[in-house]
């Protein structure tokens, strides 16, 4: 195989792998925002997922248990945000930022408390680390497939089921939902919990599937990129998935180009996915419309 072809192949697989955590978090963003809650806390929920996955894998030796713990703790932070944003009518942005800070600080503190080492955890068992192809493991493949199933499932849920239609109504006009005899606060709470679970899963992928440890700041703003993907994808599951893969591509590109363009500092290269997000969203200003009641406490 020529180096050109192998490089393209690497880029393709790396794009898939780098997209996975963003896809999960973006799907989480879609369900939460369609219900009317802006989930700025996605980043923190990913962090919680990544960290707790490592802790529980370390504890039990089973990365499957770690994965479930990641989902659970993401969902738990979702519950906190959901509860604050609905029944306590806390400003959603403030609550979300709070969750990000607590998760980041909590994980850093947990590293010292549990593993007695700051900065990064010891290595734990990786989720199905066997190579399926030279570029990709069995575990990564499984979570890519699961991610697609989640996108498919969320699309089906939002547009086909009665509950999905109610969630949509909730994000557009919660009073209409109240008038229909339903409880919009409860719908919002459940949606944000689901959102946290998806973000937690995305975080767990980062720590126990792509690598085998947690290090401080490893989510590196992917939760925020996911928020951009939600907007870029116009609040639809497949749109957000596509946007997440688009941003994932730039992250992969950045890895592939690393060290190949000598005149560009590596820090500038690392900024590539964020710049892509910035330009993508800037180009959309005024041309997309969020759910009408998105971010408005009820």
């Amino acid at each position: 195989m020529s180096t050109g072809v192998s490089l393209m192949l690497t880029l393709a697989f790396l794009t898939l792998i780098k997209s996975v955590p963003i896809v999960y978090a973006a799907l989480g963003g879609v369900i939460s925002e369609r219900a009317g809650v802006v989930n700025i806390g996605l980043e923190g929920m990913m962090t919680a997922g990544a960290f707790s996955a490592v802790v529980f894998t370390n504890l039990t030796g089973s990365p499957i248990v770690g994965l479930i713990a990641g989902i659970f703790f993401g969902a738990f932070l979702g519950f906190i945000l959901g509860f604050a944003a609905t029944f306590f009518k806390v400003d959603q942005i403030v609550a979300g930022v709070g969750i990000n800070l607590v998760a980041l600080g909590g994980a850093a503190y947990g590293l010292v408390l549990i593993f007695n080492q700051p900065g990064a955890s010891p290595q734990v068992n990786q989720l199905a680390p066997e190579q399926l192809l030279p570029q990709i493991t069995v575990g990564e493949t499984a979570l890519i497939v699961l991610g697609l199933l989640c996108a498919f499932g969320l699309n089906w849920f939002i547009y086909r089921t009665p509950w999905g239609l109610r969630v949509q109504a909730c994000g557009e006009n919660p009073r209409a939902v109240t008038d229909a005899g339903l409880d919009p606060l409860r719908l919002r709470l459940y949606s944000v919990i689901a959102s946290g679970a998806l973000a937690g899963l995305g975080g767990a992928f980062l720590s126990i599937c792509e690598v085998n440890l947690y290090s401080d700041g490893m989510t590196a703003g992917r939760g925020f990129i996911a928020l951009a993907a939600v907007i870029f994808g116009r609040w639809t599951p497949w749109g957000a998935t596509g946007a997440a893969v688009f941003f994932g591509f730039f992250e992969a590109l950045q890895y592939v180009l690393q060290g190949r363009i000598s005149w560009l500092p590596s820090d500038a290269m690392q900024a590539l996915p964020y710049l892509a997000a910035l330009f993508a969203i800037a180009g959309l200003v005024g041309r997309v419309r969020a759910p009408a009641a998105d971010g408005v406490p009820y």
Partner: peptide, 16 residues
Amino acid sequence: ELVGRLRVWHNIMLGR
């Protein structure tokens, strides 16, 4: 109290 971006049938049947 309607949901503008949804269809007529959905608004009427919402919740039922």
